[in-house]
Structures are given as C-alpha cells and as structure tokens.
Amino acid sequence: MGGKMAQELSVDLFAKAYRSQLGIQFLVKECELKDAVIKKLESEISELRLRKKILEEDNAQLKNAALSIQQFQSESQASEERMKTLDCVLNAVMKSIRPLGLDKKKFNREVINISQCIPNDGTQAARHSLLHTAVTKVLKGEI
C-alpha cells in the first residue's frame, strides 16, 4: 500500500510539474507576443513622430507662404492706390491745361474735388498723402 501511495504521489507531482511547465510555456509565449506588439507599437510611434515633424515643417512653410501672400497683397494694394491717385492728378492736370500753361486755380479746384471724394478712413485714406505729394510736385514743376 505504501508503494501505491508513493506511486500516486509521484504521478500527482509529475502531473503538477507538467501543468506548471505548460503554464510557464504559455506565459513565455504570451510574453513573446506582447514583446512583438510592443516593438510594433514603438515602430508606429516612431513613424508618427516623423510624420508629425514633417507636418510641422509643412505648416511652417504654409505660414511663411501666407505671410508672403499678405505682404504681396498689401504692396499690390498700395501700388494700386498710388496708380489711382496719380491717375486723378493727371486728370486734374489735363482739365487745367490752357494754351499758355497750367491754370493753377482750376487745378486747385480739381484737386479739392478729388480730395473730397477720397475717404478719410480705411485703406484708401492713404491716398490723401499721395495726392498731396503728387500735387506738390506738379505745382513745383517737378513732373
């Protein structure tokens, strides 16, 4: 009877050891799978960081382009205002010319009419100073 009990105990211990070995193998396999997932996630994170950097660089370039466009539009608008003002001054000169030269009184009346048509606020308000400069040049004979 003692031998049978020892044999049962041995089989029981062997079964427990086998189950423990299977459990350890299962845990090792689970760790290997988790390690593979972690490596894949680290790779994806690295790729996302690279994409983020590229997007930030693209965003900076777009901001610079937008600033350049705004500057160009501002310069274009200022140039257009100068052209309009010079066109008005030229029209005033054309209306004020008489056979012996420029009728300064008529020219001044035309300039006053032009200046009253120019708004005092907004982007067109800068035309007042442009008009003054152009009129001064005409009256001094610099043009």
Rank of each mutant, 00 (worst) to 15 (best):
G23R: 09
V89W: 00
M5L: 14
I143H: 10
Q21A: 14
L62H: 10
F14S: 14
N120M: 01
V37K: 14
H132G: 01
E44C: 06
A17R: 06
D103A: 05
V138R: 04
R51T: 06
S129C: 03
K63R: 15
K34S: 08
S20T: 13
K95P: 05
D121C: 04
P119A: 05
K16R: 13
R127S: 00
V89A: 02
E142H: 05
K16H: 08
D87T: 14
L62C: 03
K63I: 11
D58H: 12
F72S: 14
K40T: 11
A126W: 00
H128R: 08
T85V: 03
I69N: 13
E75L: 10
E80C: 02
S46E: 03
G23V: 00
D58M: 11
N113D: 13
A125D: 05
E110S: 08
E42R: 10
Y18N: 13
R51E: 13
Q124D: 11
I112C: 07
L33G: 03
G23E: 14
Q25D: 15
K63C: 01
K84F: 12
T133G: 02
E80A: 13
M5G: 07
K29D: 11
Q25W: 10
L27I: 09
R82A: 09
V138N: 02
E142G: 04
K106G: 04
I114Q: 05
E47C: 04
S68Q: 11
R98G: 08
G2K: 09
S96F: 04
N113E: 15
E56T: 02
L139D: 06
L102C: 04
K40L: 09
I118D: 05
S79Q: 02
R49W: 03
S79M: 09
I114F: 03
Q124K: 15
S129Y: 02
S46A: 08
S74A: 01
V138L: 01
I112L: 10
S43R: 10
A17E: 09
H128T: 07
K29Q: 09
C88A: 14
K29H: 05
K140Q: 12
I45Y: 01
S129L: 07
V93N: 00
V93A: 02
L48S: 12
L86S: 08
G3N: 08
K53L: 07
